[in-house]
Nucleic acid binder design. Sequence first.
DNA 1: GCCAACGTTGGC
DNA 2: GCCAACGTTGGC
Length: 168
Amino acid sequence: MTEPRYFLMKAEPESRLEKGVDVAFSINDLAARGSDGEPWDGVRNAEASKIMRTEMREGDLALFYHSNCKVPGAAGVMRIKRAGYPDSSAFDPKHPYYDARSDPERPRWYRVDVEYVRHLRRFLPLRELRACPELADMQLLRRPQLSVQRVTPAQWDFIMDLELKDVA
DNA sequence: GCCAACGTTGGC
DNA sequence: GCCAACGTTGGC
């Protein structure tokens, strides 16, 4: 059994319309999917897509991060249920994330399937993560616009301890 | 291949 | 709603 790799993936928990479709998706929404999990589609950034295509393996773990909302931060843990495969939402002209440059022959965008593991014992606001010197090198803090990113084992372990501590 | 203009992300 | 950071596009 190989060690899992760790990642962080962002979703927007608050309602926002994208071409008439509400794109809101929170840790509670993922929890409601149960063991069915959910395809993590709609990522339209080359680097983020590449991470899903080339680095994520079944069994890897990821933080579910709430972005573009009143209190951004890490909300839960999920598991990669299926490694990277073409994101078919890019092929559908009616889909809000349609991209005419991607087709099944040469897919431009990839997704993974994820499944809910658990909520963090307490929500970890970005403000608190930013204040931890141990996390200063996190991509979250250095590459704030990257929606799928790596987390090192040391950063992961630190965060798994941080959630057990009471807020100061 | 450079780089200015433009669009998007996402915190505040 | 503002706007800084930064990725993408497209003219040259």
